[in-house]
């Protein structure tokens, strides 16, 4: 418990978390502080490229084994299964329609790459290493949840014609996945030599850019909370904090079964606990337009993301450390 509190205190006082808190506070106070959209997207591209590249370099440096394939498979299974758990939990806690519940569930089976990036940052600050291919696991976990959600909707007897080839292509080839996997491959191919050549760009500035990006995320989360808080009943609100813990538990089990390192287990927990707010909302607007976006966006961005960032990350790292002896 002392380790958790110590890690939590260190995490809460880190520049990235304080930047996020500043953003939330500014939004709630109705400040006109804002990060231009193009700048936010530019920072997102930078972070995705950097994290993917470094992951690929790590794999090139340490080599791979059969655990990579098993980890990818486990990630895909978790991404497909977690929406089913989330859907069932929402039937108990919330009073949402089947469509709204399925749309929310899709978000919690997918992942938040920003939470993953923050998680790797916490691990690095704690001197904990992880498997470099967890980046690939993150990319693999983004899409299956969407298919599960659509199955949930179609199994309820509603119109099953919600998935078309265009949507499938957009999901599988969305910019985040392409950039993450592509930069991972580039890092893998070029290895340490490649990293040395661009280290000044993707290593040194990384934390600073992450601070600014989380400042923007705080602003967006704060605005979402201001505008969308009225749509969340207490049960749904509680779901936003309980489901990450359930997801993290599933990720913990998967990581331990796979025999991953402390960092790998922690990242599996982070991925399973996080909720998408970039790719899945877009897919839901196309496939489930009748679902209320205020509900799933406010939950994933206004409740779960801050919860994971402030409380979840130190807990997941501490639990992973305790159970792996790290």
């Amino acid at each position: 418990m002392q380790d958790i509190l110590s890690l939590a205190a260190t995490n809460l006082l880190s520049p990235i978390i304080l930047s996020f808190a500043l953003g939330v506070a500014a939004a709630l106070a109705r400040s006109d502080l804002n990060i231009p959209e193009a700048v936010a997207k530019g920072m997102s591209i930078y972070l995705l490229f950097a994290i993917g590249f470094k992951g690929g370099v790590s794999v090139a440096d340490h080599g791979i084994d059969g655990t990579l394939a098993l980890s990818l498979l486990a990630g895909i299974v978790l991404s497909a299964a977690l929406p089913l758990i989330a859907f069932a939990l929402l039937q108990v806690l919330g009073n949402l329609s089947r469509l709204d519940a399925a749309a929310v569930a899709a978000h919690y089976g997918s992942i938040s790459i920003v939470t993953f990036v923050a998680g790797t940052s916490v691990l690095e600050a704690s001197g904990i290493t992880s498997e470099g291919y967890m980046v690939a696991v993150a990319a693999a976990m983004e899409a299956p949840a969407i298919l599960s959600a659509l199955w949930l909707v179609s199994s309820g007897g509603t119109d099953g014609r919600r998935m078309d080839p265009t949507l499938m292509r957009e999901i599988l080839l969305n910019g985040s996945i392409v950039l993450l996997v592509g930069s991972f491959v580039i890092g893998w191919v070029t290895g340490v030599d490649g990293l040395v050549r661009i280290e000044a760009f993707i290593v040194a500035p990384f934390q600073g850019v992450l601070c600014l990006f989380l400042l923007d995320m705080g602003l967006v989360a704060g605005r979402g909370l201001r505008g969308g808080s009225g749509v969340l009943r207490p049960g749904v609100l509680a779901f936003g904090m309980v489901m990450p813990l359930i997801g993290a538990t599933c990720g913990l089990a998967a990581g331990l079964l796979l025999g991953l390192s402390t960092g790998g287990v922690a990242l599996f927990m982070v991925l399973s606990a996080s909720a998408s707010y970039i790719a899945v909302p877009a897919a839901m607007r196309v496939a489930l337009p009748e679902a209320n976006p205020s509900i799933y966006l406010t939950l994933s961005l206004g409740v779960t993301f801050p919860f994971n960032l402030t409380i979840g990350l130190p807990v997941y790292v501490a639990v992973a450390s305790a159970l792996t002896g790290g």
Partner: peptide, 15 residues
């Protein structure tokens, strides 16, 4: 009817 929104700081492709 779906609430207010702004392009400021948007990272989600769904909005």
């Amino acid at each position: 009817r779906s609430g207010a929104w702004s392009r400021e700081g948007q990272v989600s492709r769904g909005t």
